[in-house]
Amino acid sequence: MTAPLLQVDDLHVRFPVAGGGLLGKGRRTLHAVNGISFELAKGECLSIVGESGCGKSTTALSILGLQEPTEGMIRYRGKPLTGAGAPNRIDRAKAVQMVFQDPYASLNPRQSVRTSLAAPLRLHGISNGSEVEGRIEAMLKNVGLTPEQARRYPHEFSGGQRQRIGIARALILEPEIVVLDEPVSALDVSVRAQIINLLLDLQEKLGLSYLMISHDLSVVEHMSDRVLVMYFGEIVEEGRWQHIFQTPTHPYTRRLIAAIPDPDARQPLGGCQENSANAAVSAGGQVQDVFSPPTRSELVEIAPQHWMRFAAAAQ
């Protein structure tokens, strides 16, 4: 059996946080990610959903090498991507790239499009001028821009076009995995559709694997093959998109889905009342605190490939 493209095994990320006490007496540990494990297959779109502070961004940063895990292992094609034996930045760059949320902050205002695309190529040893030009041209066409636009600077583009440039930059080194961090949430509604369509087209054309971080469940349902639901640093439910959206099981997942304001909903703002919703979450898992170590609980397969977290005592 071949190793999976990306394998995250029991990932923990903890941060020391200065507490309120004098002389650092109140120093506490923030458990951002608490032992999560998952795999990403070739050509798959896996989404991590959850609310701010649930650890989904920290997980992505660990995979990108921008955040050192406290414990656990991340492997790319069976080889470690973190800790001892991790590749250097140059080698890692060919494996994983990222598309950022904010198209305004993610492009260097002082670099033309050509410079931001050519510099990584040169860094990775492609210095032949015509090859660099050729790859830039091909990449710009891929993301729906014209080669003539390479001369321009970021401020000359609209938000949607900037996001296309951001996608081009992420793909220029031909990585296999692309982390999409809220790729459309900063864009206008009409532009979102264009970028979503583009991402899906590119995935099919280039055989990309996406790891998408999002809180927008309608986008997640549209794009994902599999979904992980994270809550306070843990995966509370995991399954194919049909499992999560058609038969959501964990109370937190249900609550998330019920909270989405939907223009088609005849009953505006369906879902449970807020107090009962909190109670429901604590019934399935337990009400959590990022500063306390996780209580014992485990993921149980409730249907083929559909996993949900139960408290260990409930077994």
Partner: peptide, 16 residues
């Protein structure tokens, strides 16, 4: 800023 993080993921060294 995103572009500095992007440069890190693209394999740029610190000085660069």
């Amino acid at each position: 800023q995103g572009y500095v993080q992007a440069a890190q993921t693209l394999g740029y060294g610190d000085l660069r």
